[in-house]
Nucleic acid binder design. Structure first.
Lengths: 143, 143
DNA sequence: CCCCAATAGTTGCTATAACAACAATTAATT
DNA sequence: AATTAATTGTTGTTATAGCAACTATTGGGG
């Protein structure tokens, strides 16, 4: 049976992801923060001093991406990086004052973003959506 | 109320999309086809002779991306491009013999991919998933 | 017919994303 | 202690993704 284009759920997920990224990107533009850079900042606002390796784990990304995004965040002055004495291979990320101030502005924007995304979706539906996405993740990772 | 990292449905969708992309990428590697290049090919296998503009519309992508992907597909020998006489601004994409042959190999792989993605998910659940994704798309596009 | 709008593609730029190869450091093994 | 393993980051490359600015072509209004 030949599937047509719209039948692929993966394509729909991809489109949704692109639209979400475009939307949050526009919201973050004023703060000189790209979407994925913001994810690193979100983790740092929760807990300072994470290493790039820990960030890569938590964000489920290649260490390469984390290194480059961290480097950009450093250039923007939101963080600084330092090798801990215990392990000079690692690089810990710390918020600058500018980075801390940024959190107070951006966290409300992120929550407002989430409210818009979930508008008209009940918490039961949200749970179901998460369950199905988890199932899909399992399906492709079992391979 | 401060949301923690896992609470953002957009992050879950993003992760799922990345996993799906990684998976289909590995499946298509043998065919010298990148995931998004494959989307263009899928449309061409359905209907030959689309313009880059039409492809951009159907794939909901920037014309820039389409132009570059089409250029790569041309380099790989799967398509050729030609300006129609009626409108010399446009570029129509046509399958080469190599591109047609490729379709017979890749389409079954794409459908197998979809089967794996949807394993253990009922058609009712799939409809619900699509409905919720559509709702999210509407929410962010209304802005 | 001429100027201007709109349309279709291209080029340049920035930001993800993942892989391979590499350097520096640390841990493990003998 | 010396060699090898593993760990942590960086650099280079390819592939999306979208924006701005540009060229070429077409269509419309005067």
């Amino acid at each position: 049976m030949k599937l047509s284009f719209q039948d692929y759920i993966s394509i729909k997920i991809h489109q949704t992801d692109l639209n979400l990224t475009k939307f949050i990107k526009s919201k973050l533009e004023d703060f000189n923060l790209a979407p994925e850079q913001n994810l690193i900042m979100m983790l740092l606002w929760e807990k300072d001093g994470l290493t790039q390796n820990q960030l890569a784990d938590q964000l489920d990304k290649d260490k390469t991406n984390i290194a480059r995004m961290a480097s950009n965040l450093e250039k923007k002055g939101y963080i600084y990086r330092a090798h801990p004495k215990e392990d000079r291979r690692s690089l810990m990320l710390f918020l600058t004052d500018s980075g801390k101030e940024l959190g107070e502005q951006v966290i409300p924007v992120a929550e407002e973003f989430n409210d818009i995304v979930c508008k008209g979706i009940s918490s039961e539906e949200l749970v179901e959506l998460e369950r199905l996405l988890t199932k899909i993740n399992q399906n492709v990772q079992e391979q």
